[in-house]
Design a binder for these strands. Structure first.
Lengths: 156, 156
DNA sequence: TAGACGTAGA
DNA sequence: TCTACGTCTA
């Protein structure tokens, strides 16, 4: 199933399969996987609702990426000035992910940094945002956390 | 005349002519005009000396770009946090440009922002750094200024 | 590791 | 206008 609103698509992208690898964020945009050049959370308007369409988890925040079929994603914001962290706000991508809780599939792209400083990304399929909550980051400021589970894995 | 040190070249780039236009900074790198993805000042080591090879003037700082054959270029640095500007330091590109004063030609790329927010760049030929001095920016902090004149224009 | 006249989307 | 899990060079 795939829902489209302008260039924003919920669900799989035709021609892109789990495990497909990429080297640059701009490739994700060109192929339609993730429509943000830097931001980790992409979203669009669907019938008056703002819903998340895809996320990139590549180590920029304190995510929990230890499991193969689930992850805990950290919301964005609050670190514009690393020396003066702020509470994250329920806006933009954070709001979109919250609206998507138990509602629509979200594409997950996992990424990592190589020894030489370059990066790689790969499409990891559709996940459901199971729940979201607020926590405290290492800096003591409020951050949003999103429990995401692979659709089709045990428990879904 | 062209002096080469590794990938750093002083002087014209074969195949690139004055007026040649570009849309993205990465094009300038690919064609060899300017070896910095974001920084406005490119430089290299030439016989133990650090010399400037090219600059991009595209509106990021308070340059004086009113003349066709000369310009006053502002050094870089001091604005990492726009809310807390700092004095510019005589290092990196600023030092390179100072070392190049009345010494070696520097490629000038002029750029501007279009109405739709995109940018264009064009190669504007070789200039000589005539002199450099320190001044105060609008924020009151020290900035470096570089008087650059087109080589071959009246006065050169 | 830090700095940089980027780049696209909201 | 501002934000953003970028990208490259030194």
């Amino acid at each position: 199933i795939s829902i489209k609103s302008g260039k924003h698509v919920i669900g799989d992208i035709p021609g892109v399969e789990i495990g497909d690898k990429f080297h640059y964020r701009v490739e994700l945009i060109l192929i339609g996987l993730h429509h943000q050049i830097q931001s980790g959370i992409a979203y669009g308007h669907f019938g008056g609702k703002v819903l998340a369409t895809s996320i990139v988890a590549s180590g920029g925040y304190a995510d929990d990426l230890h499991s193969k079929d689930s992850l805990i994603y950290t919301g964005h914001g609050g670190n514009a000035n690393p020396k003066d962290p702020q509470d994250q706000k329920l806006e933009r991508g954070n709001l979109a992910l919250k609206n998507s809780v138990q509602k629509n599939p979200v594409r997950v792209i996992r990424g990592s940094e190589l020894v030489d400083g370059s990066r790689t990304y790969f499409y990891d399929g559709l996940y459901m945002v199971e729940k979201c909550w607020q926590g405290r980051g290492a800096h003591g400021k409020l951050v949003f956390k999103f429990q995401m589970n692979r659709i089709g894995s045990i428990g879904n």
